[in-house]
Design a protein around this nucleic acid. Structure first.
Lengths: 200, 200, 200, 200
DNA sequence: GATGAATGAGGGTTCATTCAT
DNA sequence: TATGAATGAACCCTCATTCAT
């Protein structure tokens, strides 16, 4: 009974994963203009099934975006244990960029504004990124006038351009990430104007 | 008749400008989701008039985006005369960012893919940016492994985030631009992987 | 086995009652717009269970409506024994109105058109109401040109308005019922045009 | 020019009338469940055209319902000039019932709750009906404990049943109207409980 | 050239109904 | 028998685009 109950649910769970994967790809391609119909088609389910799993298109976006925040937060959490603070920050950026390659968090986040679950995930990611930055700064690895918010924002921005150039130079963001990182070095850093807000 | 023909033409020209200005503002606010109806309303003309001037919404976008390319190209052209190559590049970035503040070229460009006029404008902008970069590199002002494409792309990416954070820290891109520029310094630059394509 | 079979059956019977009660309330609140999902939720069962008991939403409506017919028919049956024919009719109307207060039979019946069970129940109610009317007419209590159909129809109509005015004057139908009854008096009654059909 | 402008508008005006007529019929048949698609089809226009004329389904309902209020109000207004107050009230009821034959105002009004234009129309109708009733009462033609609200409500209720019985006895409401009117006679009227609200 | 009415495809969402478990 | 996941038709509504005037 438990088994059958579980297997029933596992079908549903499978659809949920298919839907999230499909949504990920469709949102990556078309942003919020991705249609529920396309997502359903890609997942191989009927349109109605989408709404069984996610009450609203916005909720679907929130889950997708929230998932990224959680996942990035986990990466940051692990790297906070690293013995090499500066290297940890660099690795965080690399891993994060790799992971975000197909998503434009900055863009999709706009839709999610106000969803408390997503906000929470984001805040945690934020806190951890700030911690990573703090440690790198204390170690003298990066300039002291930069914040975690700056870095996350730039990171998202860089990744944003990926989708548009896939066929040509899908890896250009790697170059740009290094330029960014070089811009974070403390030696000879130019002074920055006004602070960035704490929100991502 | 010549008179009336001319006045008609000047009326039409005026409408065209009104429409472009309105489109600029609406696209800035809502991206491609801006509706023709809203643009027409803001321009003070009827919906049908939009299509008399621009066969398609995409064409309207193309003209707006193309306008930005031309305008940025002009800025780059002037700065190519500057006696201070490195300063010229920095200034170009600052002016471009300022100008793009309300437009997301990278985003809107996707729609324009394939429009030959826009491509041409973009190529010119590209060529001039490359020239600016070359001169700065020759002067030893910036690292030698970076291209004009890299810089334009990063610039657009940074500006992309502006719209979403208007109320909080509308100027965060200024901070990020400086970080970018610091990342361009030749001293101790980390090696970059593979080249970026020539296309913007 | 008998035991478990029986317990299953009584569970099913219980669910059936729960569903009918839930349907009654939901239909009262939202008419035919009440959703199966809401009814199931209110009854505390799964959606699928609704369809095990009632093949169709229409069938569920038919059973609910039929139940009212049966119940009203029973009331009429009892009152046929009364020693005061005119008082019996008045009481019938009062009791019926009270009972229908939350249901719009005339409305819901439209959906039931053609269901033979409901038709049967309705015919019985009809017959008994006609009998009540006949007796009252013989006793000289009400005008002779009115039929049971007239009265049932008017009754349903009056009750129909109840739902819409709940907060304001939930009892206005009591006033209207009396006006109706006064209209039934034989003294000085105006002649009525053409007969009403026998169907409710 | 005025001519052409007007003819353009007259096409639109024609569609508007076609739509209102179609809406009238569809709402009569299915109440609020009438679909925009059906209304458009019946009017012979595309779905989108409905929304050009009426921003919302509710607005369409409001216009239809409001139209009835206005029209009934006009009838009442004329009859207020009559030399025979009691006859005027009877005629008002007859004309109103005739006109409402295919509409269930009480039902559709629920949707319109809160629309200020409709409310205004309804209030005027209300005021005039009250005036008709007052005059009939002063003339001793009808019982003194009844209000215009009572009468309108009953009238709508009676008419409500029409639609459901079209094929059988479409005119049964004529019978019921007379019964209602007989119930309004002052002689031997039974006392009515609590007052009805002023709102229709 | 300009207008704005008309079109119709497509979008998000709901819901009765079916069916595997 | 009961469950609840899946389906797909239908709904209201938006919007780029066309066209008669």
């Amino acid at each position: 009974m438990t088994l059958s109950a579980r297997s029933l649910r596992s079908d549903a769970a499978r659809n949920r994963e298919l839907l999230l994967a499909a949504a990920e790809e469709e949102f990556a391609k078309r942003g919020m203009d991705a249609s529920i119909a396309d997502i359903a088609r890609r997942a191989g389910v009927a349109k109605g099934t989408v709404f069984r799993h996610f009450a609203t298109k916005e909720e679907l976006v929130a889950v997708v975006v929230g998932g990224h925040f959680v996942s990035l937060g986990a990466v940051a959490g692990e790297l906070l244990e690293s013995a090499d603070p500066t290297g940890a920050l660099l690795e965080f950026l690399a891993v994060a960029a790799e992971q975000l390659q197909h998503q434009d968090l900055v863009f999709l986040q706009a839709v999610t504004e106000g969803d408390s679950t997503v906000t929470e995930c984001r805040n945690q990611l934020h806190a951890r990124t700030n911690a990573l930055v703090d440690r790198a700064q204390e170690a003298g690895g990066i300039r002291s006038d930069v914040t975690g918010s700056d870095i996350l924002l730039i990171l998202c921005a860089l990744v944003h351009t990926v989708g548009l150039r896939t066929e040509q130079t899908p890896d250009s963001w790697r170059r740009h990430l290094i330029i960014l990182f070089d811009g974070l070095r403390p030696q000879g850093a130019s002074p920055l104007p006004g602070p960035v807000s704490e929100r991502l």
